[in-house]
């Protein structure tokens, strides 16, 4: 599912590996046509991840109650964002490489079915009470005790630990890989997803 911004112009000879690309087309007198493709699925999932009341939000709430929240919140956000971005770009690269090796689209389709089934199974587990969301355990749990007045290292570690890649992130990365982006395009799309995922800590810094 693509979100197309700008005019679409296909040029089979142009490098088609980047989602944000300029394709020179002789038919238009040599003027470049700007094409930007962003995975709409990844955007929707990014908003869902960013607003979901999960472990990350609980950690942010504890950090905001710290005596001086500015530095820990910055370390939390920067470290978590950086780690998630690196993992995301690597996973997109692996998915994309495997998809090309197997045959365009096949792996993405198989992963879509697998992740979709996992999401349905998780929903069933939540509905039947077999699974409990981590946030239910409350932010006063011992695992958050060190965040009440954290060192930069602890805050950074919390940023990484509370944004460990899960099902939704893998689904989003599959969607990004399915767009067959180049390295820069993949990096930008993963960064956009991560910015949405970190929207609460980022907003907390500027509110």
């Amino acid at each position: 599912m693509d979100l197309l911004v700008g005019r679409v112009e296909a040029d089979p000879d142009a490098s088609c590996a980047t989602p944000a690309r300029v394709a020179a087309n002789p038919a238009t007198g040599g003027h470049g046509e700007l094409r930007r493709t962003v995975s709409l699925e990844a955007l929707v999932l990014g908003v869902f991840s960013g607003l979901r009341p999960g472990t990350s939000l609980a950690a942010v709430l504890v950090l905001l109650r710290a005596p001086e929240p500015r530095r820990p919140l910055l370390f939390f956000t920067v470290a978590g964002f950086a780690a998630s971005w690196v993992v995301g770009v690597l996973v997109v690269g692996v998915f994309h490489g495997a998809d090309v090796a197997i045959g365009g689209g096949t792996l993405t389709a198989v992963l879509d079915v697998a992740f979709g089934a996992a999401a349905l199974g998780f929903a069933a587990g939540l509905q039947r009470g077999w699974v409990q969301p981590p946030a239910r355990r409350g932010d006063s749990a011992p695992r958050f005790a060190r965040l009440r007045d954290p060192s930069p290292r602890v805050a950074a570690a919390a940023g990484v630990a509370t944004h460990f890649p899960g099902l939704i992130y893998l689904v989003a990365l599959t969607a990004i890989a399915g767009e067959q982006p180049g390295v820069i395009g993949a990096g930008l799309q993963v960064a956009l997803y991560d910015a949405l995922w970190f929207m609460i800590p980022i907003a907390s810094l500027v509110l």
Binding site: T106, A114, A118, L126, I168
Partner: peptide, 25 residues
């Protein structure tokens, strides 16, 4: 509304992915 929102979202996402993947396969 956490429970309803998460369960509904996961069902929608899951159904969409299964249908999309199956159609592509």
């Amino acid at each position: 509304h956490e429970h309803a929102v998460i369960v509904t979202s996961l069902v929608l996402i899951g159904a969409y992915l299964v249908v999309k993947g199956a159609v592509n396969l």
